[in-house]
Amino acid sequence: MEAGKTEDGFGMTFGVSHLGHFLLTLLLLDRLKATGQSRIIIVSSKLHHLGSVDFNTLNTHRELVTGQSLWHLFMAYCHSKLCNVLFTRELANRLEGSSVTCYSLHPGVVATELGRNINFWMRLPILIFSKLFFLTPEGGAQTTLHCALQEGLEPLSGRYFSFCSLSKVSDKARDDGLAKKLWEVSERMCGLS
């Protein structure tokens, strides 16, 4: 959740949170298919419910938002998390009939070092609040581990989990047309099409 651009000129949050996952997954896909039963786990967030994808902004700015304020950075994060869920949905559609399955998830609100670059006096209340109310990193890893290891999840490929259970996604996250368009734009941006 940082301002700036990636080395390739994409908005930092979009490049790191979506395109990085997208490209790495596609680069590994043939190997995953060759190994037999494989699972791809994409960590998203419940904040995907606040997200949207504006393809005009994406095409003209190579970013999910146009501003750099804290609000814009927060919204870029929400938009990128919607991209994660949409990517998982389209990936599952494309992997249907293979031995590779995929899942997206909300790990919970976890006490991490996400705000490590914020000035100390702004970070202090967050640190106190997180110690009182957020999950530990170990607690936050449970849904990821569930999706990676739980037997019998294969029929749920492409679905979204929270607190080790199947969970609902936003209406936008169920839009197959939006998922397919995001895939095509992401391929183009990564130089794969």
Rank of each mutant, 00 (worst) to 15 (best):
H72F: 09
L124K: 14
E63N: 12
F133K: 00
H61C: 15
L64R: 01
K168M: 12
L82M: 05
F129T: 02
Q142C: 06
C102F: 06
S38T: 03
G36W: 10
Q37N: 13
S52D: 09
L114M: 01
I118D: 03
D30S: 11
T136I: 04
H48V: 06
L50C: 07
S167Q: 12
H79C: 00
T144R: 14
K168L: 13
L95M: 06
L73S: 12
G108A: 05
V110T: 08
E154M: 09
L82P: 03
M122T: 14
C78S: 06
S44A: 15
P137F: 07
W71G: 13
E96R: 15
V43P: 00
E90T: 13
A76R: 02
R94E: 01
K131I: 04
L28G: 07
T35I: 11
S38C: 11
H79G: 00
T35N: 12
F133Q: 00
A141S: 12
S167F: 11
I126D: 03
K81F: 05
Q142T: 04
R89P: 04
L82F: 02
L114N: 00
F163M: 15
V109S: 01
H106M: 05
L64N: 02
N117F: 08
V85M: 09
L127M: 14
W121P: 11
N59R: 14
I128F: 10
E138N: 13
M75N: 04
L73C: 12
R31P: 06
L64H: 01
G67Y: 03
P125M: 10
G140K: 02
L91A: 07
